[in-house]
């Protein structure tokens, strides 16, 4: 019971954070608890874990809208990076999302990483060319926080090489009513070149929002994709 209670609490905090980021993407302002600290701030451990789940997207409004991040957002992200260092044998998505958080700190001007020089070496990206289009889309959707304009890492380059496969994965996710995966894949497609015209990505994102937009994580991804498609300056 305690485990499921903690899990539900964590999911709730992730949703709160995602709502904050989505609101900030709409109108600027701080991403973390934009309406002020809630009456009952979550326990510190849960909050840091939730930041780890949301990943680099905690700073997304500042990446896309070029506003300076709040001190608290940077601190939270930095603490999450330190608290959840991936094991050597961690899954590629775990390693890449962690790398993305370090990268986010670096982009925000925080001297972070080995000797303060950057986010460190990129994780292995060989799987990007080897995995099926279905599994590829699933993994990339989990890593949607790295889908930002101008990102030049092995993950983004690998996604670009398989833009048609990611487009197929978007269709598959929509058809299966997996709105989080669809929104994550849609955000990747917003940063990739060569998306098939027939996909109808703009309407597809609208449909994902219509059907799944009550989930703040979906809302966040769709809003990010729209901003990117609208050509936010890099």
């Amino acid at each position: 019971m305690e485990q499921s209670g903690t899990s539900a609490l964590l999911q709730g905090v992730v949703q709160d954070l995602a709502s904050g980021v989505a609101a900030a993407l709409r109108g600027g302002g701080p991403a973390v608890f934009p309406g002020g600290v809630p009456p009952e701030e979550p326990p510190d451990g849960i909050l840091i874990a939730a930041v780890r789940v949301l990943g680099a997207d905690l700073l997304l409004p500042h990446v896309l809208l070029h506003t300076p991040p709040a001190e608290r957002e940077v601190t939270l992200l930095r603490r999450a990076v330190d608290a959840f260092t991936p094991a050597a044998d961690a899954a590629p998505t775990v390693r890449w999302s962690h790398w993305g958080m370090s990268r986010g700190l670096h982009t925000a001007g925080v001297r972070y990483g080995p000797a303060g020089g950057g986010p460190g070496a990129e994780p292995d990206a060989g799987w990007l060319d080897e995995t099926s289009w279905q599994a590829l889309t699933h993994r990339l959707a989990v890593l949607a926080a790295l889908a930002v304009p101008g990102e030049d890492c092995a993950l983004a380059r690998g996604a670009q090489r398989r833009v048609v496969d990611v487009s197929r994965g978007f269709v598959r996710a929509v058809r299966r009513r997996d709105w989080r995966q669809a929104a994550g894949a849609g955000r990747w497609l917003a940063v990739l070149d060569g998306v098939p015209e027939t996909l109808g990505l703009g309407s597809g994102l609208d449909f994902v929002e219509l059907m799944g937009g009550t989930d703040p994580v979906v809302d966040l991804q769709v809003r990010a994709a729209r901003l990117i498609r609208a050509g936010v300056p890099v």
Partner: peptide, 13 residues
């Protein structure tokens, strides 16, 4: 070209 792109998704589904 359209079918070559999207048929794999429908077959999978």
């Amino acid at each position: 070209a359209y079918l070559e792109t999207w048929l794999p998704v429908w077959i999978d589904d």
